[in-house]
């Protein structure tokens, strides 16, 4: 077994699967014994858990509102599905958030509000990165339509109060790296105050 095969095996095992790859390898008895030892070891379970903890902490710290909304709407399984089934791509926060956003966008069980919310949180991350880099160009700008009042939605998610119902008024949320608070809420085209919610943008 080459070093590359050993490393592919270890990465596959820590993701809970070796797939078709393991079967394609011509393993010596010693190599087969090593793989069996790993599969039988408690250390494998611990390694998998450490990987999942780190990943969960990245998602929870960059998308706390989305995570809370998924829990509130009975979709905790979707979070578990992401953590356990989606390939790990990175140890970094923004890249993990982007992958989580793409996963939710393509998930049939996830509703429009959640998809809009994850787009908002990913947008805030992108905007804050550009703002921190002190670059005048490029800029980041994103416009999102909410079915509920987003300020009421954020409050409900942050304080554990009931979620707001849909509102017929048009709510638009603009995320922009050139804005001091990085985002602004519009209601029927007029700016809606969001000062109590700046903690979201300041994250």
């Amino acid at each position: 077994m080459s070093l590359l095969d050993v490393q592919r095996s270890l990465v596959g095992l820590t993701r809970g699967s070796m797939g078709a790859y393991e079967n394609a390898l011509q393993l010596t008895p010693g190599e087969q014994e090593w793989l069996t030892q790993i599969l039988d070891s408690k250390g494998l379970q611990v390694t998998q858990q450490i990987q999942q903890w780190w990943r969960m902490s990245r998602v929870c710290s960059t998308a706390p509102l989305t995570i809370e909304l998924l829990k509130r709407t009975g979709l905790t399984d979707v979070i578990v599905e992401y953590i356990t089934n989606q390939p790990v791509r990175t140890l970094f926060f923004a890249a993990e958030l982007e992958q989580f956003k793409q996963f939710l966008e393509n998930h049939a069980q996830v509703d429009t509000t959640t998809k809009t919310l994850i787009a908002f949180e990913a947008g805030i991350k992108s905007a804050s990165q550009l703002a921190s880099a002190n670059l005048t160009t490029p800029t980041f700008s994103l416009s999102l339509k909410f079915e509920q009042n987003p300020l009421e939605l954020f409050t409900a998610l942050l304080t554990g109060t009931p979620l707001p119902s849909a509102d017929s008024q048009g709510f638009q949320l603009v995320v922009d790296s050139t804005l001091e608070t990085l985002w602004r809420c519009y209601r029927n085209g007029a700016i809606s105050t969001h000062s109590p919610y700046e903690q979201v943008a300041a994250r």
């Binding site: 820590t14 993701r15 450490i50 390939p87 790990v88 791509r89 140890l91």
Partner: peptide, 16 residues
Amino acid sequence: LVKNPDGSEDHAGLLL
């Protein structure tokens, strides 16, 4: 990091 036979890249998610 590890590259798969198909050229795609996997990340272990922790240092191995």
